[in-house]
């Protein structure tokens, strides 16, 4: 039985561009189920990243509602949202965005530290997952000493280390060559299958779209499924 995890109702986002309203999203109604491997595709400026940011509570909609496990999270306070994201979401960014002064292992440990998990346990879990996903050898490397693909794989492990319900990946392969992109996407598919983590991608990369179990096409702020 499919379990709903995220739902939007008439989601709208209007940006103010020097007094000119720009409609990024024009009423999105979307339901996403647990364990889905969903890709939101569309041309540049179609609203993919905006939708992803709203689903990930990084931004507030101008109109409409967002429900997480049937609870309205649209108007949660900033303080509550950081805690909510920590427990429920994992994020993968286009530019990897690892903390440059921490090693790969420490980057992965970081979100566990925010959850108050003791160091020994953090280290054990991080090593295990890195080993499982074949990046153990990167443990002591800092972002500057890793390739883009390596950084993105570390970012992916960081995103799932706390067993989030949903991982939001914004153009994760945009800066990678196709071979590295394949390795990364295979890894994420594995995590999706083995851990039943919901993956929501924003991408117009064919590699990503080809692996989608569900593909949403956004155009001018509207879904063309």
């Amino acid at each position: 039985m499919k379990m709903e995890i995220l739902r939007t109702e008439n989601l709208e986002k209007i940006y103010d561009d020097d007094g000119v309203p720009v409609h990024a999203l024009r009423g999105i109604n979307l339901t996403i189920n647990r364990g889905e491997y969903l890709v939101i595709a569309g041309p540049s400026g179609s609203g993919k990243t905006t939708l992803l940011n709203l689903l990930g509570t990084l931004d507030k909609p101008t109109k409409g509602k967002i429900y997480f496990e049937n609870k309205d999270i649209t108007n949660k306070k900033k303080r509550e949202l950081s805690d909510f994201r920590l427990h429920k979401f994992g994020f993968i960014f286009q530019a990897y965005n690892l903390i440059p002064v921490l090693t790969a292992l420490e980057n992965i440990e970081f979100t566990m530290m925010l959850l108050g998990i003791p160091e020994k346990e953090r280290r054990r879990r991080a090593f295990n997952l890195m080993d499982e996903l074949g990046i153990k050898e990167l443990a002591n490397k800092r972002p500057n000493d890793m390739s883009g693909g390596q950084q993105q794989r570390v970012a992916a492990v960081r995103a799932i280390i706390n067993n989030p319900a949903v991982v939001l990946a914004d153009e994760p392969t945009a800066n990678l060559d196709s071979k590295t992109g394949d390795i990364l996407l295979d890894m994420m598919k594995k995590m999706n299958k083995e851990k039943n983590i919901t993956f929501i991608f924003s991408s117009h990369d064919k590699q990503v779209m080809d692996r989608a179990e569900r593909l949403l096409i956004l155009k001018d702020g509207l879904i063309e499924e």
Binding site: L58, R79, D83, R85, L86, F89, F91, N97, T111
Partner: peptide, 9 residues
């Protein structure tokens, strides 16, 4: 990024 991944203010 830190705020996104859940670091409190």
């Amino acid at each position: 990024v830190l705020m996104s991944i859940g670091m409190k203010n």
